[in-house]
Design a protein around this nucleic acid. Structure first.
Lengths: 226, 226
DNA sequence: GGCAAACGTAACATCTTCGTAACATAAAGG
DNA sequence: CCTTTATGTTACGAAGATGTTACGTTTGCC
């Protein structure tokens, strides 16, 4: 579960692209759906931080998607921002009563949208997801992008930090090199799996006494085990 | 100071009555003003819990009232909901940037309005005022728009000050260039992320001995770490 | 023990990213 | 109006990060 992930549900390809671009630019990760059923499936699988939901989508309507989300115990607390065609008051009110946290009226300005997203996230998050990870002498502060070993900051590169984050987030679970490549190297990376080894090594080196908290599972991949 | 008091600023008597009636029905106390100057005076005297502010009012405009409220140390934290004639995007955005906490577009439904008032009140917490930021020889007075290095004022441009403010406000947290662009610059750029670098550099230059409090997180962005 | 596959390590070339300066243009101020 | 200041853009070099290759080492299995 990425703590920075936003699901955008919108069937118009142009608007979808516009939304995706702007939200990404604001520093969030984006996944998309173009109709109701897959939207629900994706929410349940990825548990995004927020759902931006167009009302008029094929299949299950935006209303019903929202209603459904607010019924599930896992998905209830995920904030929803409704995207409505222009000024249909009834829709707005019903939306808010359904449990949507806000709405944005088309046509919207990107900046306004980002402000609203930020506002909703601000008031919905107990900031628990981004808490620094600490065990013994190893601490990782994700917000500050900072890691410490026995009180001293260690200089991790962007990739190393991402890799460590990914390992920590799936602490205890083995991840194959391919999985790590997909998550840490977001772009389509035609690279060699051995690249992961190299970065694991560099990471271990910098972790010093805690190097062996990154376990090698021979024939499978790596896992973090504090 | 009643903790349930809402000031409604609106010059149209019909709308004013509609607003007053509905907000009272929702359990709040209401005082009213019909133009900007008296609105300011009333706010300062009664310190209401929230201000519902029409944009088009005689005398001082809603914008200026809002701006003025956000300048005073006593009134800064009072949330403002803007009431705009029609969905003029620019108005909305500027309103939000002025420090308004939300806006409602006329014609509005009473239920929607009440929901928004409740939402804004819910999230408006007793946060601390924008006190000057001071550490060692560096001090930044947001209200005075003034910064000092070792006792001497440094001349920051508007952009530099905004940038510094944004960094300070998220002190310790990394922010990507895109995030900074969205927050500091009010419009969207088309891949000119290097602009941020330039301004960071100018800022650092003026910060003198404290230049390195602005940390570069290579591959990610910048953060302030005093 | 012998073997092969899997993994660790080191070194290197290449590519990114960032800082810097210089320039061009827009805005502000007199 | 002209001058000054602020702002955005571009170019380039240095420092750093990254991916790859080659080779050494370990592991599991017979």
């Amino acid at each position: 579960m990425s703590d920075n992930l936003i699901l955008v549900v919108e069937d118009d390809p142009d608007i979808l692209q516009l939304l995706t671009y702007n939200i990404r630019s604001a520093g969030y990760e984006v996944i998309t759906a173009t109709e109701g059923n897959s939207a629900l499936a994706i929410v349940r699988q990825y548990l995004p931080r927020l759902v931006l939901l167009d009302l008029m989508i094929p299949g299950i309507s935006g209303f019903d998607v929202c209603k459904e989300l607010k019924r599930g115990s896992e998905t209830r607390k995920i904030p929803v921002i409704m995207l409505t065609a222009k000024g249909d008051e009834v829709d707005r009110v019903v939306g808010l009563e359904l449990g949507a946290d806000d709405y944005v009226v088309k046509p919207f300005s990107p900046r306004e949208l980002i402000l609203r997203i930020a506002a909703v996230l601000r008031r919905s998050s107990p900031e628990e997801v981004d808490k620094p990870w600490v065990r013994e002498g190893l601490s990782v502060d994700f917000q500050a992008h900072r890691a410490e070993v026995d009180g001293a900051e260690i200089a991790l590169t962007a990739t190393e930090f991402k890799l460590l984050t990914e390992l920590l987030r799936n602490s205890g679970k083995v991840q194959t090199r391919d999985q790590l490549l997909n998550k840490v190297w977001t772009y389509q990376f035609e690279g060699y799996a051995r690249t992961v080894d190299t970065h694991i090594r560099r990471l271990r080196q910098k972790l010093g006494p805690y190097a062996d908290w990154i376990k090698t599972i021979r024939g499978v991949g790596y896992k973090f085990q504090g």
